[in-house]
Amino acid sequence: MQITRLFALLLMVLEWTCPGLSSPLRPICDLRVLDHYIKEAWDAEAAMRACKDDYCIARNFTVPLTRVDFDVWDAMDIEEQAQEVQSGLHVLNEAISSLQAFNQTDLIQSHIDASIRNIVSIRQVLRSLSIPEYVPSTSGGEDQETQKVSSISELFQVHINFLRGKVRLLLGNAPVCHQGVS
Rank of each mutant, 00 (worst) to 15 (best):
P24V: 04
A50H: 09
H178E: 04
A82M: 01
L169T: 12
N93K: 13
A82N: 13
L163H: 12
I119H: 08
I131K: 00
L169N: 11
T105C: 03
R168G: 05
W73D: 03
A44F: 07
T4H: 06
S121I: 11
M1A: 14
V158P: 03
V85A: 10
I57M: 10
S97A: 12
D30H: 10
L89P: 15
H36W: 14
L99S: 08
S121A: 09
R123A: 01
Q86Y: 00
I152K: 08
K39N: 08
V85W: 03
S23D: 09
S23E: 08
Q86D: 00
N118T: 05
Q83H: 10
M76R: 06
L65A: 11
C51T: 08
T4N: 11
S87T: 13
L163M: 14
D53V: 14
Q83S: 03
W73V: 13
F156W: 13
L6T: 03
K52H: 13
L9I: 12
K52Q: 13
R168Q: 07
S22G: 09
S110V: 09
Q81M: 03
E79S: 12
F156G: 02
Q109I: 01
L65C: 14
L126W: 00
A50F: 07
L92M: 12
I112M: 05
P132G: 00
W42T: 01
N173Y: 02
E94P: 00
P19F: 00
V181S: 01
F162N: 02
G165I: 04
E145V: 09
D53R: 08
L169W: 00
P175D: 04
R59S: 09
W73C: 04
Y134A: 06
E84T: 12
P19V: 02
E133K: 05
V68G: 03
I28P: 00
A46P: 00
A95D: 08
L6I: 08
A47P: 02
S97K: 14
S115G: 15
F7W: 12
D74S: 11
R164Y: 04
V167S: 07
N161L: 14
A174M: 06
V120R: 14
L34E: 07
Q2L: 09
I122S: 02
I112C: 05
L14M: 11
F156V: 02
E154H: 03
R117D: 15
T146I: 14
R67C: 04
L155D: 01
T105S: 11
G88V: 06
V72T: 15
I96R: 04
V33T: 12
V33C: 11
Q104P: 02
L169K: 07
E79D: 09
T146S: 08
